[in-house]
């Protein structure tokens, strides 16, 4: 086996996939290749002249069946910085209400000849179904509680830029693991790059057999955070707060909300992440969210860079005739 460090450069690594449907199925060097591309995109994004032309003449459609502000605008910006023509379609408000099926939507889109299709859908597996029915490259921007690969990539990029590596770091993912696509993508990616992944949550917010998913399971924050290098908080959806999965916001915050006291059990130089949007006072104390250990705002910047990297990598497979 060829030894491989997560800090070696993999910039030249070709990305052999037509779609990015999940982190599952990606090889470690392919992940690292995307992260290296993203580093360059960070540089581009920080210049006054941010525009590249690799996607010039290409059409990118952002197809969002579920409302999203930051992911959609992040993909839009990424596409525009690479020179693509970007169109946003919020499907929840149009065709679906008229009874159009996912397959009908795919056929309609196909007729418009897009090159890149960015899809978010509330049902796990919907993006895979769509990918089989359209002629272009498809990027999963989140399918139900299944995967959200660009979020995991941007998290990895953020971590690597601060810790210099991913392998052997202890990463604690805390909160609603059960309903989280961010958690699933991160568990796969972090394990692929050699991190030790922990999950911390009340049992009602853990999927069954979680201990066989490559993580160490904790039900107690103070124990789970011991020795953690990275603390990744997850958003708790409002509809889960009042009695079905947890009894109340105040009880959740008391036992699972990240405050200074709980964070003090993690390593001194531990960093705090959150995919956003945050519920201050539910899963995270404002003091921590906006504190010196927080990387939350930087994650947003890395989001654009990672999406540029993904769009660029996929564009290399697009037909040129």
């Amino acid at each position: 086996m060829i030894s491989m460090s997560d800090t070696d450069t993999h910039r030249g690594t070709p990305f052999p996939h037509r779609h990015l449907l999940g982190i599952e199925g990606l090889q470690p060097h392919e992940i690292l290749g995307l992260l290296d591309r993203a580093e360059e995109a960070v540089e581009v994004s920080r210049k006054v002249e941010k525009k590249k032309s690799v996607l010039s003449g290409r059409t990118q459609i952002n197809l969002f069946f579920e409302a999203s502000t930051r992911t959609q605008s992040s993909f839009e910006l990424a596409g525009k910085r690479l020179g693509a023509d970007v169109m946003n379609m919020a499907v929840s408000s149009s065709s679906v209400k008229k009874g159009e099926t996912l397959i009908d939507t795919a056929a309609t889109l196909n007729a418009m000849h897009p090159d890149l299709l960015v899809v978010r859908h509330h049902a796990a597996g919907a993006v895979h179904l769509l990918a089989r029915k359209v002629g272009c490259s498809v990027i999963n921007a989140g399918d139900g509680p299944h995967e959200h690969p660009t979020q995991a990539l941007l998290d990895a990029l953020t971590i690597r830029r601060h810790k210099g590596k991913i392998s052997r770091l202890v990463v604690a993912i805390c909160g609603d693991i059960l309903h989280s696509r961010v958690a699933r993508s991160n568990i796969i990616l972090l394990n692929a790059l050699g991190a030790r992944v922990r999950v911390i949550a009340p049992s009602t917010l853990l999927p069954s057999r979680i201990e066989q998913m490559g993580v160490e399971v904790y039900r107690d924050m103070n124990e789970g955070l011991k020795g953690a290098d990275i603390v990744m908080m997850l958003r708790l959806q409002r509809e889960r707060m009042n009695g079905a999965f947890i009894p109340s916001v105040r009880e959740y915050f008391r036992f699972y909300g990240l405050d200074r006291e709980k964070l003090s059990h993690a390593n001194e130089d531990a960093l705090v992440m959150h995919p956003g949007p945050m519920n201050r006072g539910v899963e995270i104390d404002p003091e921590v969210a906006d504190g010196p250990q927080s990387l939350i705002r930087e994650q947003v910047e890395m989001g654009v860079a990672v999406r540029m990297a993904v769009l660029e990598a996929l564009s290399e497979h697009l037909p040129n005739q």
């Binding site: 009695g243 079905a244 947890i246 009894p247 109340s248 036992f255």
Partner: peptide, 15 residues
Amino acid sequence: LTKGLEGQDMTEIGL
């Protein structure tokens, strides 16, 4: 065990 003993929403067992 449930709020108002109505059998729907769990109470704050920890608190």
